[in-house]
Design a protein around this nucleic acid. Structure first.
Lengths: 112, 112
DNA sequence: ATTTTATTTCTACTAATATGGAATTGTCAA
DNA sequence: TTGACAATTCCATATTAGTAGAAATAAAAT
């Protein structure tokens, strides 16, 4: 992933409402969640939510799939994966070795 | 790290100039780089760069240290670490197992 | 056909961000 | 103590983002 695209995607995650959406959709897994369910969990106006979803869709962080009159939102896990991979690749470049503790045994990443 | 803070930090990384700064400072490692050196690499006006640095400092992504008339910028690796850790923790929560390939052997994270 | 439900698009408004020239501050050297 | 250098702060301006009510669209149920 090139820098511009990574920045655009990070910017979308860089808003508390959208990061909350991200969080909810990670928990929901591959089948995703309906817009209505997300709205209920966040308790925000439908138009506001719709606006945020549209932004995330525009950078391919998530996709929607209609089933009857319900729209299901699913995270694009491969895109999220690529984004985190990009960040890691950058972080690992320090002096040829990682300056991050996250990859050492015993921490979060190791448990995934 | 709580959601609000994580979002604020992601938002700062979510700008191409600042992500470029981040990248340069990762490569520079712990000793960091002077503002002037960063400016030279990015080729942008000093005031614009200063503005972006100030924003990143505000959310503790980086710090500055004066040495004579030169200001050195250093990434706060522990903060970056915590931020990526937060994202990972969220991502790992899907159905109790990771939906990310990034932690499987053979990819970027594994090489760090 | 009409109503209900789910969600988006339209619209308007306000606030925040990004940019960069000019003036300023801090530090050293002559 | 004046001059040069490093970088910031001040300022104006242009653009983009965020919010949410109202109207519109889509699909199902009656």
């Amino acid at each position: 992933m090139e820098l511009e695209l990574a920045a655009a995607r990070l910017a979308e995650l860089g808003h508390s409402t959208r990061l909350a959406i991200f969080r909810i959709l990670v928990k929901a897994g591959r089948q995703g969640l309906s817009v209505g369910d997300i709205q209920q969990q966040l308790d925000i106006p439908a138009s506001t939510l719709s606006h945020h979803l549209a932004r995330m869709i525009k950078v391919d962080l998530l996709q929607q799939q209609r089933e009857g009159r319900t729209l299901y939102c699913q995270l694009q896990f491969d895109v999220v994966d690529a984004l985190l991979g990009y960040l890691y690749a950058e972080c690992c470049a320090a002096d040829g070795q990682s300056l991050l503790a996250i990859n050492k045994k015993g921490n979060v990443a190791a448990k995934c």
